[in-house]
Design a protein around this nucleic acid. Structure first.
Lengths: 352, 352
DNA sequence: GTGAAAGCGCTAACAA
DNA sequence: TTGTTAGCGCTTTCAC
C-alpha cells in the first residue's frame, strides 16, 4: 500500500541503500543510476517516512516550543523570529500550547521528549525551582524566551529588562511633566513579569521623588478585559489620586484601559495619558495609536533559537547561560500628552 | 545513554513486551508486575520514543495543519477550535506555515506526508485544479477550512457563505438607510474569498435597486495597511461617489479604513459607517468598536477536525464531501449609523 | 500473564 | 559506485 524505499529500489533495479543515498548524499551515486532512481521515486510518488529516518539516525532536526497560549497576541510576533531562525537552519518546530496551565506545560515537556526534539524553547511564565528536577534529568537543551530561570538550574534566557523598561516609561512620562502616574501591572500565578514591571515602576517613582503609593496601582491578566477592569478600579480612586498618566504591563491592557476611559467620557491623551507594553500590531491600529514599549520579539525569537542550536551542537560546553537582556525602545505615538511648555528633549536630559 | 524500553525491562526483570503492555494495555498485565515495571519507568525516567512507536504501529495520531500565515489574526481563532477538537480525540497537531506562498504550501504537504500525518487540514487560499493531481495520489484525507475546492476533487470544506454574508451586510446597511455603499474587498493571487465577497456586494446592490458601480469598489490584501490604502483611494473618488457606508472583507481592513478616515478628519460612524468581516478579538477593542460579520471560527475548526477524523476512521465511505456553510452573524457595535427615522426592525422586514 | 521473535522504513558501516 | 547487513526503539503475533 504505502510505497517504501524498497519498492523504489526494486522498481529502479537497485538496492534500498542506493535509494537512500540518492536521497541523502546524491553526490556519491552514479548520475545514471541516480536518474533511474529519481524516475522511480517520481513514478511511484514515493515520500520517505520521516519517522523511520528519525529513528534510524536518532535525530529529528526538530525543536519543541512550549507557549502559554496561541491566542496571546504577542505569541505570533515571537513565532516569526523563531520560525525564521529555524528555517534558516532547517529545523522543524513542534508546537505545544500549555493553555496557561503549569500542568499542561509539564505535559508539553513529556510530549516533546517523546517526540525526540533536539531542544526545547519555553516561553513566558516563571521558571522556578519546580522545574529544576525536570531540567536536571531531561537531557535536552532548553532555552527561555520572555522569561528567565529563577531556580537552581541556569538556562539561557532572552527577554527585555522589565524593570528597566518600566523605569524608562516612567522617566518618559516624568520628562513630559507627569507626576501622578498610575500603573496597571500584570498578574497570574506563575508570573514574575508583572512583579518586575511593577518594581520598575516603584523604583522610578521613588527615583524621581514622586513617592510610591499602592493606591496608584492595580493589576490585570494582561488581556483587554483585565485592563478595562483595572482602569475602572483606578477611576474609582481618581478623585483622590488625580492621575494624569497610566503605564501598563501590556498593550492589550492599555487598550482595555483606553476603552474604559472612553466609556467614562474621558479622552486619551487629553484627560489621561496611557502607555502600553509590547508594541503589538494592534498598537498602531487603535485610535489614538498607542505609545508603548517595544519588545524585540522577532529578535528574541531568533536569539533563543541560536542559543539552543549552539547547545545542541556542542552539548559539552556551557556557553550561554543566564539571562540576556534584549534592547527595548519606547515607540512614541499618540497616547501621551506633554504637560510641559519646555521641549521634551530638555526634560529628558534632566531625568538621567 | 537514552533509556529505552529494554533498559526498563531488565531493571524490572521482565521482557520488553511486558513493558510495552503496561504502557499500552495495562489491564492485560499482572498488578504486581505492573507495579515493578512502573517503578522501573519512574526510576529510570523513561520516556517512550514516539517515533519508534509510530513506526511500529504505522499510525501517528497526528493531523497536519497548513495555514497561510501565523500572523494573520484570524488564524489563532481558528486554531482554538482545531486544538479543542484534536485534544478531545487525542490527536496531535503538526503546524506548517505556508507564508502565503503556493509553493510553500506544496512543501507543507510534502513535509506532512513524510511525517505520516493521518490527515491534513488546509486553510484559506483557493484550492483549485492545480491541487487535483496532488490530492488524487496523496492517500491522506484532506479537509478544508475557510476555503473550498474548485478543482475536480471534491473535499469536505467548512466556511461561511461569503456571498450571502456580504449580501446580508449590504441589506443591513440598506435597512439603516444607506444607499451609497462602498466596498473594500480582498485580493491576493490564489484568493477566491475576495471575489465571493465582492459578488455578495454586487448582488445586493443590484437586488436593492441601487445599482453596481466599480467606482464604489477597491481592494486590499486583508491587512491594516491594505485597508488604509483602499480607503484612501475611495476617498479620492468621494466627491463624486458620496458614500455613506463602507463594507470590507476583513476586520483588519475595516480598522485600517477607520484610521484613514480619522486621518482625514472624518468621524466614524457620523461621517461614514464602516462594517468589518471576521469578528476578531480586535473588533471589540477599537474605538468605536467595530460592527462586523462574525465567522464562527472556533466551530469551523471543530467541524473540520471532525470531518477529517471521520474520513480517517472510515476511509472507504465518502460521507462528507463538498462545502458546508457555517452560520455567520452580524455583530452590531458602534460603527454603523442609522440614517432612518423609522426603526431598523421595520426596515429590515422590508428588505427581505 | 509473559517472553521470543519478527518487523515497521530507513540509514550507516562494511564489503565487494 | 553499489549491495549486504545490522540496527534504531517499539509493538505485536504466537507460543508457552
Amino acid at each position: 500500500m504505502k510505497v517504501t524505499i524498497r519498492d523504489v529500489a526494486s522498481k529502479a533495479g537497485v538496492s534500498a541503500a542506493t535509494v537512500s543515498r540518492v536521497l541523502n548524499k546524491p553526490e556519491l551515486v552514479d548520475p545514471e543510476t541516480k536518474q533511474r532512481v529519481q524516475a522511480a521515486i517520481k513514478a511511484l510518488d514515493f515520500h520517505p517516512n520521516a519517522m523511520a529516518r528519525g529513528l534510524s539516525v536518532s535525530r529529528t532536526d526538530t525543536i519543541g516550543l512550549v507557549i502559554p497560549g496561541i491566542n496571546d497576541l504577542f505569541f505570533t510576533e515571537l513565532y516569526r523570529g523563531i520560525e525564521k531562525a529555524c528555517s534558516e537552519n532547517n529545523m522543524k518546530i513542534l508546537l505545544f500550547d500549555s493553555q496557561h496551565s503549569r500542568h499542561r506545560a509539564l505535559e508539553g515537556f513529556t510530549f516533546l521528549r517523546r517526540h525526540q526534539v533536539s531542544g526545547i524553547i519555553f516561553t513566558s511564565k516563571l521558571v522556578d525551582q519546580d522545574y529544576d528536577a525536570l531540567f536536571d534529568r531531561i537531557g535536552i537543551p532548553v532555552a527561555l524566551a520572555l522569561t528567565e530561570a529563577t531556580g537552581r538550574t541556569p538556562l539561557p534566557a532572552f527577554k527585555v529588562d522589565d524593570v528597566r523598561a518600566v523605569f524608562d516609561v516612567v522617566a518618559y512620562l516624568v520628562a513630559r511633566g507627569h507626576q501622578r502616574i498610575g500603573m496597571i501591572t500584570g498578574e497570574s500565578e506563575d508570573d514574575r513579569t508583572g512583579l518586575l514591571r511593577l518594581e520598575g515602576y516603584r523604583r522610578a517613582m521613588l527615583h524621581f521623588g514622586i513617592g510610591y503609593s499602592e493606591s496608584f496601582v492595580t493589576s490585570g491578566n494582561y488581556r483587554f478585559d483585565g485592563g478595562y477592569a483595572a482602569m475602572q478600579e483606578l477611576l474609582k480612586r481618581q478623585p483622590i489620586n488625580q492621575l494624569t498618566a497610566i503605564c501598563t504591563a501590556s498593550d492589550e491592557m492599555a487598550i482595555g484601559a483606553m476603552r474604559c476611559l472612553h466609556d467614562h467620557g474621558l479622552s486619551v491623551p487629553d484627560d489621561m495619558s496611557v502607555i502600553g507594553f509590547d508594541d503589538l500590531q494592534i498598537a498602531r491600529m487603535v485610535i489614538p495609536s498607542l505609545t508603548t514599549v517595544m519588545q524585540p520579539f522577532e529578535e528574541i525569537g531568533e536569539q533563543v533559537v541560536r542559543a539552543l542550536l549552539q547547545r545542541i551542537e556542542q552539548p559539552s560546553e556551557l556557553p550561554r547561560q543566564g539571562t540576556y537582556y534584549m534592547p527595548h525602545r519606547i515607540v512614541e505615538r499618540e497616547t501621551v500628552k506633554c504637560l510641559n511648555s519646555s521641549t521634551s528633549e530638555e526634560q529628558l536630559e534632566k531625568c538621567f
